[in-house]
Design a protein around this nucleic acid. Structure first.
Lengths: 215, 215
DNA sequence: GGTGCTTTGTGAACGTGTGCACGAGCGGGG
DNA sequence: CCCCGCTCGTGCACACGTTCACAAAGCACC
C-alpha cells in the first residue's frame, strides 16, 4: 500500500521519538540491523508493540533479519518531520524560561531556541545565554522572519491563557505549555503540556498507596 | 463501599492534581460548592469524566447541589498523600538540576527540594539557590535524616541508569526522570518520566501531518 | 533447490478508558 | 407534605490500546 492513507495512533506517535533515540545509539555503535526484540529492550517496551508501531510507518523490516538501522532511522525522522529544524520561541524569561533557554537538549534535537519573549521592559533587548529577548509585540514579525513554528509557554499560570492567545494570534500553530494551568486553544492548534508538580503528585499518590497487600 | 477496596485507574490519578488545582482556585474565590460541569470546564475535560473520577474517591457530592469545595479538596489531598510534605533530592547540579532547584513550583506544592547531589567535588559543600550540594555517597544518610522520598534525575543520559541504581540503593522508592533515556528500576519502585524533546517531536509530527484534507 | 531457523507483519482476543443516558436522591417552593 | 427541578452516581456501549499467537517470508547451509 503505497504511502498514503495511514492514521498513526497517538500512543504510537509518542513512542516514535523513543525508538528514534535508540536507533541513534545503534548508529553510533555502527550496528547495521536490529530486531524488534532488541529495539523493544532499548525502548523499554515489548517486542509486539515495537512491530505494530513500526508497521504503521510501512513495511521497513526484513523477516528473519530485522530492521536496517540507518534506513529505519531515516524513515522515522521523515515521518516525525525532523529532517529540518523547527525554531521555537520561549514565552517568559523568568526562572523557568531562562532554564529552558539554557538547556541544550532542544537545539541538539533540531529545535533551536530562536528567541525569548518577555513583557518586562528591562529584559527586552538583552541576551540571556546568548538568546535575544524581545517584547510580546515583536512576536508576529519574528514568526515571519525566523520561521518560528512552536511556542513554549514558561510564564506564571495567571497570564498563561493570555500569552497562549497571543502566540496563536501571531501565527504559531503548536504550543508546549509548562505553566501549571489548563489553557484552551482554537481548533487547528496543537497543544501539549508538561506539568512538573503533577508528576510529583502522581508519585506521591502511588507511594501513599504502596502495593496494597505487600508490605 | 466504605473506604477500602477501590482501585483508582491510572488515567484518573493523573487528572486528580488538575482537579485539585481547580478546587484551590475556587477556594481562593470563596466559592462554597461546585458542579461537575463547572469543574469539568476548569479542568478541561467533560462532566461525565469528572463525576466518574470523583466517584472513585467516594460519594462526596450532593445530588441537586454539587460538591462542597473545601471538603472535596481535603479528601482529594488526603487521597493524593498531600497532607504532608515529601522532600525531594535532585540528582545532578548541572543546567537542568540547578534550574529545577530554582523553580519554586515544587516547594509551593509540598515537595521541598532538600538537597542537590553531584559527583563534581568542586560543587559539593556549596549552596545553589540556597540548597546544599552533597556527594552521591551522602545520599543514604540524607534519605534517613531528611526523610527524602523522591529522587529527581537531572543528569546527562549517559549516567542516568547508574544514578537511578544509586537512588534506589539509597532507599528511595519514587523517581522522576528528566534524562532523555529509558531507565529501569526494580519492582516496587515508582518511575515517571518527563522528556522535553519528546514533546517537541510529537508536536513536530502533528504539524508535519497537518489536518489531512483541510488546508 | 530444498530444508530449517529466524523474525516480521497482522488478525483476533483482551483490557483499559471514554462518553452517553438515565435512575437515584436531594433541596426548595407551594 | 408533596411535587418539581437539578445534579450526582453508574450501567452500558463504544473506541482505543495492548498483547498474543501464528502464518508469511527471507536467509543460510547443505
Amino acid at each position: 500500500m503505497g504511502d498514503g492513507a495511514r492514521h498513526i495512533p497517538e500512543a504510537t506517535v509518542s513512542r516514535l521519538p523513543v525508538y528514534l533515540r535508540s536507533l541513534a545509539e545503534l548508529l553510533d555503535d555502527n550496528v547495521p540491523t536490529v530486531s524488534s526484540e532488541r529495539l523493544a529492550e532499548m525502548a523499554g517496551v515489548n517486542a509486539a508493540k515495537v512491530r505494530k508501531d513500526l508497521s504503521y510507518l510501512g513495511s521497513y523490516g526484513t523477516r528473519g533479519v530485522g530492521y536496517e538501522v540507518e534506513y529505519l532511522a531515516f524513515q522515522m525522522s521523515r515521518e516525525l518531520g525532523l529532517t529540518r529544524d523547527w525554531p521555537v520561541a520561549i514565552m517568559g524569561a523568568g526562572n523557568l524560561g531562562q532554564a529552558l533557554a539554557n538547556y541544550g537538549g532542544f537545539t541538539d534535537r533540531g529545535f533551536p531556541v530562536a528567541c525569548l519573549i518577555d513583557a518586562d521592559e528591562s529584559k527586552v533587548g538583552t541576551r540571556i545565554h546568548g538568546i535575544p529577548v524581545y517584547a510580546p509585540a515583536d512576536l508576529p514579525g519574528l514568526v515571519q522572519e525566523l520561521g518560528i513554528s512552536i511556542g513554549i509557554i514558561a510564564t506564571p499560570a495567571t497570564v498563561a491563557q493570555a500569552v497562549a492567545d497571543h502566540v496563536v494570534a501571531s501565527g504559531i500553530k503548536s504550543i508546549l505549555n509548562f505553566a501549571p494551568t489548563v489553557i484552551n486553544v482554537p481548533e487547528g492548534t496543537f497543544l501539549r503540556k508538561v506539568d512538573l508538580a503533577l508528576e510529583l503528585q502522581v508519585l506521591s499518590f502511588y507511594q501513599e498507596h504502596r502495593t496494597p497487600d505487600r508490605v
